[in-house]
Structure formats: C-alpha cells, structure tokens
Amino acid sequence: MKNILITLNFSENDQRLLDQGYELAKAFKAKLWLMHIAAPNPDFVGYEVGPQYIRDSRASKLRHEHQLLQEYAAAMQIEGVEADGLLIQGATTEMILEESKKLKVDLIIAGYQEHDFIYKALMGNVSSQLIKQSKIPVLIVPLH
C-alpha cells in the first residue's frame, strides 16, 4: 500500500479520519492524500455567479479550506508521514473516484454518519455511493 486517500468535510469528526489514516500510513509507509470536495461553482450547475461580493466570499471560503488542508498535511509530515492536501470542486463521489485513479490510490478512507430521511433524499450518502461504485478498497469509519 503506497497511497491512501482520506476524504474530509471539515467537521468535528475529521480528526477520527485523520487518526485512522495516520495509523495506516505509518504502518505501511504510505503517502496520505487529504481531500476535500468543495461544491462546484454556481455556473457549473447552471446558475449565474452573481454579484462580486458572492464571488469574493466563495473565493475566501476556498482559500480557507485549502489552508486547512495544508495545515493538516503539515501536521502529518511533522509526525513522519508524507502527506498532501487536495481541494477539488465538483460532484463528491465522482471526484473522489476520478482523483483516486489519477493518484493511484490503494485505499480510500471515508466517514459515515447517520442522517435523517430528508438529508439522505436531498444530499445522498457519499459513503454508500463509494462502496457501490469504487473498484478501490474503501474503509468506512463510523462518526458518531
């Protein structure tokens, strides 16, 4: 195992995923890829971008998310694990699978948290989609 991908959503549960990835990367001397999938640009999904303050706000949020990924990666490197952060925009499951192939990932680590029916109907469940669609092994970490 040479490359491990951790999917992050910047929640309070990210540390569990990072800890799990760290342990596996350390044991296998693997590289960690820390990935966050940001929502696609509004024009990508058929809406106009809107006023400048909306674009500025979006850009600021993306810079902040990128900085967090870099901080997580730097912390892993201090602990002796090679790590890089990736901030990608697009459809979550598709982007995880696409990037996993590009990076030659051997394992995808994702979290699972139970949601109500309305959330599932509107947002779907990335963990379930990954399990169904991935040809790469997926480790699901329960997040309660």
Rank of each mutant, 00 (worst) to 15 (best):
L87K: 03
D43P: 00
A75R: 14
Y112Q: 05
H115W: 00
E114K: 12
K61Y: 13
L130N: 05
P142T: 06
F117T: 13
E94V: 09
P51Q: 09
Y22P: 04
Q67F: 08
A73F: 09
G21D: 01
Y22F: 13
Y112P: 01
I118M: 11
D14V: 04
V81I: 08
L5W: 05
K29I: 00
K61I: 15
A30R: 02
P51Y: 10
G85W: 05
Q77F: 03
H66A: 15
R63H: 12
L86S: 05
H144I: 14
P137G: 07
I6E: 03
D43N: 11
L87F: 05
N9S: 14
H66R: 15
L17N: 03
D19Q: 11
N41E: 11
R16P: 00
K102S: 12
E71A: 12
A59S: 13
L97W: 04
S134P: 09
I4N: 06
F28C: 11
M35D: 03
M35R: 00
Y53W: 13
M123A: 10
P137D: 00
V105M: 08
L103A: 10
A39D: 15
L122I: 11
L62P: 09
R55Y: 11
E79P: 00
A30D: 06
G111I: 08
M35I: 06
A30K: 01
Y72T: 03
P42A: 10
L5E: 03
K102D: 10
N3D: 10
H64W: 09
